[in-house]
């Protein structure tokens, strides 16, 4: 494979990621808003839209939708940073891309959103990389790590479209919907018959509790799969760590506020034992044990260390302007 072909492929990868995760899909509206943000009226609107929700709650449907879109836009920059770490895309980026991306990430409202209100490490690193202030990467990326990155994109594209998981996380985060809250999910999981009745309802008859109950099962499944996937990436520790950081905000939130409750919900399943065959009990025990181990690993933060260390070393080496960007423990 020639260097020219390699460059051409990595440029196509960049165009492909930009198309899939920035210019189309759920980030498209935010990208379009950023394109209009140069005049003063739009800047004020953006500042208000990307506020801290604890200061003033987000209630309007339009704001919820647009903030969601910004979450996906910022997620794109997380993906781009991971792609840069393994040179799946050109490093440095072609100047036209660099300029456009830096404009998004340097916007004061957007920056405050991903640095202060909802801190995420990967977009911060991406901005530093675009500014030429960061140059970390895996020492020897090759097609194997590129293939793993593509597998990660598969997991991500499936994960981001599940409404049941969204609703369960909302309940876990003390949210409620149509009169239901987390305690209703917990109660439902204590009773095998109730649980089965709920999950067997047709979609037309499902209410929010039914959906959240299904979301719980899917969440366990995701944690198992993602933890297993991270283990497979262990040959590339910075890459492995960056993948964890992609979901770190979520894991951190779960760990800090709801981890014990999540474990309690898992434990509730053991009350089903008397109603099932011994084969089902054994399968259930194995699955739940594995789920608990995976959740413990994901919430421990251990996966996140390698990237943080690499950043700090890189910044120390460069001794340049990194102090302005906080390295949040959360992330």
């Amino acid at each position: 494979m020639t260097a020219d072909r390699l460059n051409a492929d990595s440029k196509i990868n960049l165009e492909d990621l930009t198309m899939c995760y920035r210019d189309r899909g759920r980030a498209a509206e935010a990208t379009e808003i950023m394109g209009r943000v140069r005049n003063a009226t739009n800047r004020i609107y953006l500042d208000r839209l990307l506020r801290d929700h604890t200061a003033r709650p987000i209630k309007s449907r339009r704001e919820i939708r647009q903030r969601d879109s910004f979450d996906f836009l910022i997620a794109f920059y997380g993906i781009l940073e991971i792609a840069s770490l393994i040179r799946y895309v050109p490093v440095p980026l072609p100047s036209a891309f660099n300029t456009a991306f830096l404009r998004d990430l340097s916007n004061s409202s957007v920056k405050r959103y991903y640095e202060k209100y909802y801190p995420l490490l990967l977009p911060q690193l991406c901005r530093l990389r675009l500014e030429g202030k960061l140059s970390i990467g895996e020492a020897s990326p090759d097609y194997r790590v590129h293939a793993l990155f593509q597998s990660f994109l598969s997991i991500e594209s499936r994960q981001r479209i599940d409404d049941d998981v969204d609703l369960f996380l909302w309940f876990l985060d003390d949210g409620w919907s149509n009169g239901y809250s987390l305690s209703d999910v917990v109660e439902c999981l204590l009773n095998r018959s109730d649980f089965l009745k709920r999950i067997l309802k047709s979609p037309q008859k499902q209410d929010d509790l039914d959906s959240a109950v299904c979301g719980f099962g899917k969440l366990l499944s995701f944690c198992n799969d993602f933890d297993g996937f991270l283990k497979r990436c262990s040959t590339w520790p910075i890459f492995q760590s960056a993948l964890w950081h992609y979901y770190a905000y979520w894991f951190d939130l779960v760990g800090e506020s709801i981890g014990p409750r999540l474990r309690k919900i898992i434990n509730n399943f053991y009350s089903w034992k008397s109603e099932q065959s011994s084969d089902a009990n054994q399968m259930m025990r194995e699955y739940l044990d594995q789920s608990r181990d995976s959740i413990d690993r994901l919430l421990s933060g251990a996966y996140g260390v390698a990237l943080r260390d690499a950043c700090q070393n890189n910044v120390a080496d460069r001794k340049a302007g990194y102090g302005a960007t906080q390295m949040h423990r959360r992330t």
Binding site: M1, L6, D9, S10, N13, D16, C20, D142, Y143, R144, V145, H146, A147, L148, F149, Q150, L153, S154, L230, K231, R232, C233, S234, T235, Q240, R297, A302, Y303
Partner: peptide, 28 residues
């Protein structure tokens, strides 16, 4: 964390029939 070396194993197992390419043969 935990090195089960699956990818290395994959590489060793499949190396006779895989040309060494820098990019996967498919898009994501």
């Amino acid at each position: 964390l935990v090195d089960n070396s699956r990818e290395n194993y994959l590489f060793v197992l499949r190396s006779p029939c895989v040309s060494i390419v820098a990019m996967p043969s498919h898009y994501p």
